[in-house]
């Protein structure tokens, strides 16, 4: 019984500590973001890493999600003769929900884990300590460029995922399910408003912040050699994914008010 309470107590303590440390890192990062000199080279390098190098996986997941959405919604809508609504169903699902969430999760798996591994390795091989001893702040040098890359590139990747998803839905809807192309496009344009797309982009901004901040946090505070680096990568993916889904719920509920 005592062990149970100790376990719960330890969990609560860890939760408070980790939350505190993450917000402290966010606070320091925001401070350093506005203090020159700006490490433009580092920022562009990270933007390339997060953005350009995630393009392929985002294109792949976006297109297949759009295609499967078309099949599924056609199957459901056919039952009450509303096949013409396949287009808006695909577009709204992609723009409001699946575009940002899937992009967030895919980039977490690809770039977030890599960030945690890289910073974790730098921690255990004392490269982060070396930055301190050379009077270079590692939050500014390592964390700020990664967070900026996350919040700048996720919206871009989300727009790409939305677009390719809609294109995939169109391809299946028009060429496989034989929906009239004019009807498909016309209905989509009728139903989807700019607000829907902007809501999705707003979400992706927060997802980009979550995945880069969590990855940097896990990497930065890595302990215990190679095993610790592996643990940091795993923890960063699990924690980011869960937080993205939780944040998605709260952001959606606020946007529908």
């Amino acid at each position: 019984m005592r062990e149970l309470f100790e376990y719960i107590g330890q969990m609560a303590e860890d939760f408070v500590r980790i939350t505190g440390e993450i917000f402290l890192m966010l606070y320091q990062s925001i401070m350093w973001m506005f203090i020159p000199p700006f490490k433009l080279r580092n920022i562009f390098k990270q933007m390339e890493f997060v953005g350009v190098k995630s393009m392929f996986v985002v294109l792949l997941t976006g297109s297949f999600t759009g295609m499967v959405l078309a099949l599924q919604s056609y199957n459901a809508l056919k039952r009450f003769g509303a096949e013409s609504l396949v287009g808006p169903t695909v577009a709204l699902s992609m723009a409001r929900e699946l575009g940002p969430v899937l992009t967030g999760l895919m980039v977490t798996g690809r770039a977030g884990s890599a960030m945690a591994t890289e910073l974790g390795t730098m921690r255990v091989t004392e490269q982060i300590d070396a930055l301190y001893t050379m009077a270079v702040n590692p939050i500014k040098y390592l964390v700020v460029p990664r967070i900026l890359a996350g919040i700048l590139m996720l919206p871009v990747l989300t727009v790409i995922a939305d677009f390719i998803g809609v294109a995939g839905g169109y391809f299946i809807g028009v060429h496989v399910l034989n929906i009239n192309p004019g009807v498909y496009i016309g209905r989509t344009v009728d139903f989807v408003k700019m607000e829907d797309i902007f809501d999705g982009i707003t979400k992706s901004f927060f997802f980009g912040l979550i995945l880069s901040l969590v990855a940097c946090y896990q990497g930065f505070y890595t302990k215990g050699g190679a095993e610790g680096v592996g643990r940091a990568a795993t923890n960063s993916v699990v924690m980011s994914s869960v937080l993205i889904l939780i944040a998605d719920y709260f952001l959606t509920s606020m946007m529908f008010k």
Binding site: T121, M122, T125, E126, Q127, D129, A130
Partner: peptide
């Protein structure tokens, strides 16, 4: 540093 801590 012990392992030189060069930036890899």
């Amino acid at each position: 540093f012990q392992g030189a801590a060069l930036f890899d």
